[in-house]
Amino acid sequence: MQDQNKFNYIIQQADNCLILGQRLAEWCGHGPVLEQDIAMTNISLDLIGQARLLYQYASEIQEEGKTEDDLAYLRDAWDFKNVLLVEQPNGDFGKTIFRQFLYDTFSCFFYEELMKSTDERLASIAAKSHKETLYHMKWSGDWVIRLGDGTEESHNRIQQSVNELWSYKDEIISINSVDQEAEKAGYGVSLELIKNKRNEKIKAVLEEATLSTPESDYAHKGGKEGTHSEYLGYILADLQFLQRAYPGNQW
């Protein structure tokens, strides 16, 4: 291994992308209308693309002759370092939208900062991904406003999702030892900086959507250390089935 901390740092974000991409893909063929079905699977594809770029780089740092596929298909739940937010179930369309919005408001500012990474490869992955997350944040933000400021039914339902997901919003900007070391070394970003920008964006959109902000700032944590909710096991069972049942199988 060239750099254990850099590997861990990349895996955190790669796992966020892969798991959320998988969750969104569950909507394929089930979207409320065709256009939004396509939107969700488009975003899913972008996320899986970003995950691939990150896993490819991580596997090179790992120097064990493994590939991106090994990292995606052959690790266990405790090896995954995604935040709990991205593994939360899709729920109704509003819940998927709000989960997406919480993620997009992180990833957009995260990649914006990561573009300044001292690691050129990470900086170029970030520049590429940032362009995509701008679309995603526009889409999810517009929908939060439309549902919140929509009918009584849509307002109540997305408010319910806001309340349910609120305690999952802050793990993604919580700082662990991997983040600390990455920032110190120069290839990582300042999560403190991202937190402020992100909070402002969330506040502005919720206001426009006429949605109220839950009072408690309690945050569920554990995903970044590999302690997950029961949902991740089921996601991986689906995602990894083929490689587990038929090891080494290829297209």
């Binding site: 594809l45 972008d46 899986i48 693309g49 970003q50 691939r52 770029l53 590429k128 995509e132």
Partner: peptide, 8 residues
């Protein structure tokens, strides 16, 4: 160069 990261 890829257009989009996930471009199949």
């Amino acid at each position: 160069t890829p257009t989009y990261t996930g471009c199949p």
